[in-house]
């Protein structure tokens, strides 16, 4: 990934900033610039997701992509966030054998990978099992 691309995505990667359509109230992540439902009636504004959700599906990766060799075995999951969007993310701080569909997870700030020993470190969101009961508000 080129440095400018990582830099452009920092708001999304660090703080789960997606978009919300002011017309139909649908939340999108990654952010969309056009609402697929409302089309030109859509009013998309930046929207910060709270970072809590449930695992909809997952797999345990044993044969990793480049840059993830030392993380195996790791869990890659589809997480459905409270606000609606489903996102793909790593589940960290967990025992892969105890992860289940339906598990509640919360966002955490982690290293995703590094370009090389001399290169940039890419930080961003991962999810981990909830450590405290969800509070309202």
């Amino acid at each position: 990934m080129a440095v400018p691309r990582f830099w452009r995505e920092i708001p999304n990667r660090y703080n789960l900033i997606g978009t919300k359509c002011g017309n139909c109230n649908t939340v999108f992540f990654p952010p969309r610039s056009v609402c697929p439902k409302c089309r030109r009636m859509g009013k998309l504004e930046p929207y910060k997701l709270r970072g809590r959700g449930k695992i909809v599906s997952y797999c345990t990766v044993h044969v990793p992509a480049d840059g993830f060799e030392d993380a195996v075995p790791y869990v890659l999951a589809i997480v459905e966030l409270e606000e609606g969007p489903r996102i793909t993310a790593q589940i960290t701080d967990c025992n892969p054998d105890s992860v289940k569909i339906g598990d509640e997870v919360e966002v955490t700030f982690r290293q995703i990978r590094e370009e090389s020993q001399d290169g940039l470190i890419y930080y961003g969101y991962k999810f981990k099992p909830v450590s405290n009961p969800p509070s309202e508000g």
Partner: peptide
Amino acid sequence: PGPDEDTATIAVEAAR
């Protein structure tokens, strides 16, 4: 620290 943790990730969690 875990494999995906460093001073920046620890600082961010504490700061949040």
